[in-house]
Amino acid sequence: MFASKRLGKELSKLQQNLPPGITLVEAENFSEWTMDIRVVDENPLYAGEIYRLKFSFSTSYPIEPPEVVFTQDDAHPIPWHPHIYSNGIICLDLLDRQGWSPVHNVESICISLQSMLTSNTKKERPPGDEDFVRYNKQRPRDISFVFHDNQV
């Protein structure tokens, strides 16, 4: 409905200025964007690495949240985090239908992910990562995560 208009405006803002550690890689259309993020402080878990994010928007964005996953290639690993599965799927309340709010945007999601990494000290995957990665066929937005701890 208004997704393309809103994304158009977000894009022109992103092209003007972005907070440190966040870069726009590709936004050729209004359905899929690629962003890179890195952790700006000196957390040894993430030092020197750049992570690639894929945003997928439905036509109901920003009423509906975008689908956001980390993607892996030779230059971009999947960051270690007890809420990030090794296939790049992120368990973050903000990206869940219930936790989402339409006042969020691509930039604020990137900032939230940055701070989620910054504050983490555990080189861990979520419990059951192996099984989840092997058996999950659902799209991230259809998975209902249980948020057991909000401390991380």
Partner: peptide, 17 residues
């Protein structure tokens, strides 16, 4: 119009929840 769209899905304040 847009806030109503949001409230129909999620009856919370977008900022304060």
């Amino acid at each position: 119009a847009t806030l109503i769209e949001h409230l129909k899905r999620n009856p919370t304040d977008p900022l304060t929840r």
